[in-house]
Design a protein around this nucleic acid. Structure first.
Lengths: 204, 204
DNA sequence: GTTTATACCGTATGCTGGTATGGTTATCAA
DNA sequence: TTGATAACCATACCAGCATACGGTATAAAC
């Protein structure tokens, strides 16, 4: 979508139907033909990027399962996908963040926001649940608490990395991010996997 | 500030000089008298709320020190201040988030954003450093890594709690938040404090 | 008592942007 | 051939908004 590029390098406020049309190489009328209103267009763009990111993560997990990787490793990769460590993810981050800001007073956008966030958290919880069944996670651990914590770390880390891509004290942000995610996962996935073939996340 | 109220319950886009003026009980002309431009006004509002939150945290820490509380407890309280658990904090959260969204393409706002975030993280690092000197923290622990993690958890938790104030699975968000913060701090502050009288954070 | 500065107001102006409208072309079914 | 639906365009219209401007009032300063 052309809207996303626009948002990413000019900001959501810079998005006008006219500009969007030009950037997409079409006329204003055509944009109107597809979206009855501007809000509709923005909503579409938001759901679109959200879905795209999710698809990438899901794909990552699916192939991971196929290769019989441990769940903790899969989660690490998945979480890293949401941290803006390269240009692609940085662009995505900018877009989602812009929408997140507007979500505060646009119910339709807010809905997409909570839905995606919720799905991420629930999938993590599911992964933890599966981890229990295969021995990677201690049985007495609360999956929802841990999932919330992991979701929070991911989202928070994303912001830290975005603000200081160079990292702190000479250590690159990407390295810090990786090690933090790893450590955080290590407090949840404390055992070895001894059973395979389960689904990790509820990727419907 | 009247701007903040407006932002909180109508969104940043709903902020016009005219509306702001009316909401503050004055004329458009007077607003112009104080702020040459609208952006100037918004910038002022952003720095204002940021400073207010910080002041509250600083005050909390200062009295905590006076009462000789352990550093980990102070940090827990401080971090909780940034999580929208009551109406006040929820309002603040909405305002700061709205600005954070616009920060993506407004250098002046972005500056305030990174400055406040950076300050929080550095203060946490300082607290950890102090924790080492008084025995609460293991000497080999990397302060910057831990500080980044704690800052990330705080910010991420804030979003989780904002989206699901009711919590997950029957557990109130506030309770989850508290326990997550506590656990997270427990991995850093592993010892007992045996020495008093140090500053916790660099509250200048 | 006149100047200067500050607090304060109402309105005019110019522009930008969303949407409405009235069109053209093209495809395809009846 | 006709009719209908969809892809596609240019522009007109109108509202909302930031900013400019020209003003009044109060009061301290000289």
């Amino acid at each position: 979508m052309a809207v996303c590029e626009l948002i990413s390098d000019a900001g959501l406020d810079a998005v006008t139907v006219a500009r969007t049309a030009r950037s997409a190489g079409m006329s204003v009328g055509l944009v109107q033909h597809y979206f009855r209103t501007k809000d509709e267009m923005l909503l579409h763009a938001f759901t679109y990027v959200s879905a795209r990111i999710r698809d990438r993560v899901d794909e990552l997990i699916r192939t991971g399962i196929r290769h019989r990787k441990p769940i903790s490793g899969l989660l690490a990769e998945a979480m890293a996908q949401l941290v803006p460590m390269d240009e692609t993810r940085r662009t995505e981050f900018r877009v989602t963040r812009a929408f997140a800001g507007r979500s505060l007073d646009a119910p339709a956008l807010a809905d997409v926001d909570v839905r995606t966030a919720r799905k991420l958290r629930d999938d993590i919880a599911q992964a933890i649940h599966n981890g229990k069944e295969c021995g990677e996670v201690a049985p007495e651990l609360d999956p929802w608490l841990a999932a919330t914590r992991l979701a929070a770390i991911t989202e928070g880390l994303a912001m830290q990395v975005y603000r200081d891509p160079g990292g702190v004290n000479g250590v690159p942000a990407a390295d810090m991010s990786d090690s933090i995610i790893k450590n955080e996962l290590a407090t949840v996935f404390t055992g070895e996997c001894h059973q395979y073939g389960r689904r990790v996340a509820g990727s419907a």
